[in-house]
Design a protein around this nucleic acid. Structure first.
Length: 267
DNA sequence: ATGTCGTGGACGCCACGA
């Protein structure tokens, strides 16, 4: 099974790129973030033409998450119990059963600046996500939580830790909140490095992409039992190139589910 | 380091968010 996650920074603008990429990479499941589309606006027929079912959760303009799957899409859940808002709950999490894996697509609040109300919201949102994930039946066997976490888990997940002192995405509080989620029995899959860099996001400004000034903030947290079956994990940097890219690249993970517990006979 | 994009409202620019 190939699972991918991609913050597309407006799906309305990115549909042509996403369609093209689906044909090239052929993921079984694609987790999308920052669709910025209402459910009514979601271009599901264009994805259906490529064999993908879609489940979308969005209010338009900001945020918005979705799941595309060509291996089944059932038990769709929008948001989660205990999810905090700002002050209203935002469209930041959607889950579904895809094949035999419970897949979440999440867009963690940015946090803006350390100590701001948005920062407190980010931490409480991550804590609530952990609580919700802990109640998932298959947390240690068949679960993948994918998306834009807006947290770089380790110092080498940013181009220069010294440049981030005092910034969001790297604080002990944010990293601890992600670590607590991982500690439920998940693995933070580290994609293959490119020239030593594992980055998934590069600011549009200042030519950061071409200078290699990126961050690894798009994560695939996967059940430890599934992690042992991962055959490859990489950042598709081509998705960040060319005209009108998102500022995030797609992250791709391949899992060999043959013979896995709960796997369907067809694989 | 703050150079670029995206959104939408009142416009051919500005404020805001990332």
């Amino acid at each position: 099974m190939r699972i991918a996650t991609w913050n597309v920074n407006s799906l309305a603008v990115r549909v042509p790129r996403v369609l093209k990429w689906l044909e090239i990479a052929r993921p079984d499941v694609l987790c999308l973030q920052e669709t910025k589309l209402s459910d009514e606006q979601f271009p599901r027929t264009q994805f259906a033409a490529l064999g993908y079912d879609a489940a979308a959760y969005g209010a338009g303009q900001w945020n918005g998450v979705a799941l595309l799957s060509r291996v089944g899409l059932s038990d769709v859940q929008r948001g989660f119990a205990g999810e905090p808002g700002f002050p209203e709950v935002e469209a930041r999490a959607i889950a579904a059963r895809c094949g035999d894996v419970r897949v979440w697509s999440v867009y963690v609040p940015n946090g803006r600046t350390v100590g701001s109300p948005h920062f407190a919201y980010k931490l409480s949102w991550l804590n609530a996500l952990r609580e919700a994930a802990a109640s998932e039946a298959h947390v240690t066997s068949q679960l993948a939580i994918c998306g834009d976490f807006n947290v770089a888990p380790n110092d080498d997940d940013v181009w220069d830790p010294a440049a981030f002192v005092g910034s969001t995405h790297v604080t002990t509080e944010e990293r601890s909140a992600v670590a607590a989620l991982v500690d439920l029995g998940l693995v933070d899959l580290r994609p293959r490095a490119f020239k030593g860099e594992p980055f998934t996001y590069w600011d549009y400004r200042a030519g950061n992409f071409h200078k290699g000034l990126g961050m690894r903030i798009d994560l695939v947290l996967i059940s430890s039992a599934l992690a042992t079956r991962v055959t490859d994990a990489y950042v598709d940097r081509d998705t960040r190139k060319g005209k009108l890219p998102s500022d995030h690249a797609a992250v791709v993970v391949d899992i060999d589910l043959s013979g896995a517990d709960g796997a369907s006979p067809a694989g």
